[in-house]
Design a protein around this nucleic acid. Structure first.
Ligand SMILES: [Mn+2]
Ligand SMILES: [Mn+2]
Ligand SMILES: [Mn+2]
Ligand SMILES: [Mn+2]
Lengths: 159, 159
DNA sequence: TCGCAAACTTAGCATAGGCTAAATTTATAT
DNA sequence: ATATAAATTTAGCCTATGCTAAGTTTGCGA
């Protein structure tokens, strides 16, 4: 139970191994924006019938030219399709990514709610956390969420 | 228990509120590198007596000029001090950030281990997750970790 | 001590992701 | 039908973060 809280977390002996972890984080970040965009686009299409650039810009809190720029990149990378001045559609690849992103988003949110994080804060944290969870960890998280739900359901206390 | 897994996670009605969440993520990302650097620098100083640019570059998996560039920015922003061609030191601000980062890193890792994530994967995921947890969520996470430890300790099963 | 290797810096380049201002196209309302 | 408004795009700018190649400084071994 002695939780060496002031020891390096990091193995300074094997720099190659450590470097690989940071490389994964940099990769995660490079797909993060794609994930948020396609998830929003899927939501907009389902809710409004179409995904317009102006709505994306409002939801993301960035300027319209910024969205335009990113959409062009996402189109090059095969996530979306859109003809000039028309609204935005998902490719099969984009739809798959959106579906996956949405599931993870739900799972993270469900977990945060279960451990007692207030809804607003859970929403905020989930938006960042969702992009850094491996499949393995998602599995374990789902199991832990169920375990905690069961525990508190059967008369457990958490405060 | 009907977990509407194919509903938008996102409130498309209030774009201002949603935009605020993404703005926080963008802010998180802009301090993320600072956190990883100061944490590594603290570890190197404790372990080796000094933090050298070349070791940072090896551990981070980036080139030496990249580290040089970032260190100059971190110095402007008051996290580190270093005279040309000499090794790198933390300011009080840098030390505080490093300490905080290390605690979070430990907590996330402890949690991931507790829910059964293999050590390698836990290390990898923690490196990204650690930067997106609010204080509130950290609190709840610590409590959940204890609860799960207790549960499995007292003859619980998780698979 | 002095020459070479290691470490660090500078210069120059690239891409991603932001911005504003201005141009262009599409949609709407009279 | 046409003027105006809204939406989208382009142009031009910025910073952060990455790179390689080349220069500079430091440190060490012979
Ligand atoms: Mn999401
Ligand atoms: Mn997100
Ligand atoms: Mn860390
Ligand atoms: Mn990290």
């Amino acid at each position: 139970m002695a939780e060496d809280r002031d020891m390096p977390v990091i193995d300074l002996q094997d720099s190659g191994k450590r470097a690989a972890l940071f490389e994964r984080i940099r990769r995660d970040h490079s797909v993060e924006i794609a994930e948020d965009y396609v998830e929003l686009i899927a939501d907009l299409i389902e809710t409004n019938g179409e995904a317009r650039l102006v709505d994306l810009a409002d939801l993301l809190g960035v300027s319209r030219p910024t969205v335009n720029n990113t959409i062009q990149r996402l189109q090059k990378e095969g996530y979306v399709e859109s003809k000039p001045y028309r609204s935005i559609f998902l490719t099969d690849k984009g739809r798959a990514v959106a579906e996956h992103a949405r599931q993870r988003h739900h799972m993270v949110l469900d977990f945060l709610h279960t451990i007692g994080v207030p809804a607003d804060i859970a929403e905020a944290d989930a938006e960042g956390l969702e992009h850094h969870l491996s499949e393995q960890t998602l599995d374990c998280l789902a199991r832990a969420t169920e375990a905690l739900k069961k525990a508190s359901g059967h008369g457990g206390n958490q405060s």
